[in-house]
Design a protein around this nucleic acid. Structure first.
Lengths: 246, 246
DNA sequence: CCTAATGTTTCACCACATGAAACATGGTTA
DNA sequence: TAACCATGTTTCATGTGGTGAAACATTAGG
């Protein structure tokens, strides 16, 4: 072992267990043990610890574990002041009112993107976006934006990741990213979700860094590829304003 | 050591570190080490682990730690469906509109209570209640309710806790709890906070268990002890309705 | 009744978490 | 400039305490 670990294994495991609950809201002991490949007795001890500290609770009925009050308590103490999710909410609502479609805000987080805020279209047929969803970086308009404006090294790291799908034509893909950087927005048409289309633009903060991606999405019945391109300038203007705030 | 620990010390410590951020949103290494009485090198390793997993981040400017994205992500996956905080919000808003004062919802959590929801009075002078605040169980109208309707064993455990203040007259205190159970509400007048008065009632869920405490509070200038008793029946009716929902 | 799948506890082993101490860094003072 | 102090970081010997196999307990289902 050349580069010595300076982390604590038991804690890593406990945190991994907590993150399991982003995929399933209720989990049994063996279920968790299966997901993180540990012996159930080990998981049992970790769960006892998490439960004792209130980070998970046991459902009285199902006997399964779910996230506890402490998680919620912690989240209320996240520093709200500089949190884009609350800071940009009003601007997102205005954009939704203007375009009439669902508006989402994404943050790059490692090899994924995270939908940190969303305001839903109020039309009868609409795309419903779930806040907190973790989505892949290799598909969708917002992904393209986040990848296109990432650093070279960052991109290389992503592409080399085993999770990243094999590119049939790497040059064409890089060409597309270049195009996105040039015109300042990306589109997607039934790419991640059938029946959904989206436009996304980067939000550049005052330091000149791409801090997030802003997208507008809706059903293909209402949004043609033409519509996407019509939306783009409106989005860009909104993103520019938002960038001033963060 | 007679009763063997079946918890994991390193994990307990890591979780304790996380909870430190409910008191301070930004913390340095030695600061944390001081709070949980550990050597800074130990804390350093734990923090590296927490950071690697995204549960804390380092502020670029101050070099201090703050809670990370993962905490927020986890919190969005708390099962919202049966969460009283969102379920009872509309009813709380109606109550606020009716009485014109700040309405709070408390949950018992171990030796404390937790304000899990609050809607503020919209009068100029008002009591501002912070959601997520952890408060003691030995003072305040809501505390009295939560203690009064706790089980005998629970009460004993609380009273024997070293944190619990010495009771000058235990019999009088028990007498007061009995009175609260009889009339179904508790009051406080400049008890926890100078200048604030409150009434609180229990919320009994469909299983007949006291699941939470509902309180209305405001400045003493507007709320006399008489007002508190006038509010009580309104609160009780609201709590009855809320109880049906959880 | 047996079987299978849960969760729980015990226990011997030795990996690995631990804290002291040394080191590095930046900021403040004289 | 040096001396100082308060941060954070890394190293390392020590033995505690985390680990997983296995045994046990419990429940549900066939």
């Amino acid at each position: 072992m050349e580069d010595r670990k300076l982390t604590v294994r038991a804690v890593e495991r406990a945190l991994d267990i907590l993150m399991c609950f982003t995929r399933n809201s209720e989990l049994g002991l063996t279920e968790i043990a299966g997901q993180i490949h540990l012996h159930k007795s080990t998981v049992h001890r970790l769960m006892t610890t998490l439960e004792e500290r209130g980070f998970v609770i046991r459902d009285a009925a199902t006997e399964k574990y779910r996230l506890g009050l402490k998680v919620w308590e912690l989240s209320t103490h996240l520093s709200k002041s500089d949190d884009p999710a609350v800071l940009l909410l009003p601007a997102m609502e205005r954009l939704r009112d203007r375009l009439g479609e669902t508006v989402s805000l994404y943050l790059r987080d490692g090899k994924d993107r995270l939908r940190i805020q969303a305001v839903q279209s109020n039309q009868a047929i609409r795309r419903v976006a779930q806040v907190g969803a973790r989505l892949p970086l290799y598909v969708g308009a917002s992904s393209k934006v986040l990848v296109a404006f990432a650093t070279q090294e960052d991109q290389q790291e992503l592409f080399q990741d085993p999770e990243w799908p094999d590119m049939s034509d790497p040059d064409a893909y890089l060409q597309m990213l270049e195009e996105i950087r040039e015109r300042g927005y990306a589109t997607s048409f039934e790419e991640r979700e059938p029946g959904a289309a989206a436009v996304a633009v980067p939000i550049v903060n005052r330091s000149g860094v791409v801090a997030a991606a802003l997208s507008v999405s809706g059903p293909v019945g209402r949004i043609s590829t033409d519509t996407l391109h019509e939306f783009a300038p409106v989005l860009k203007e909104a993103a520019r304003e938002m960038g001033m705030m963060i």
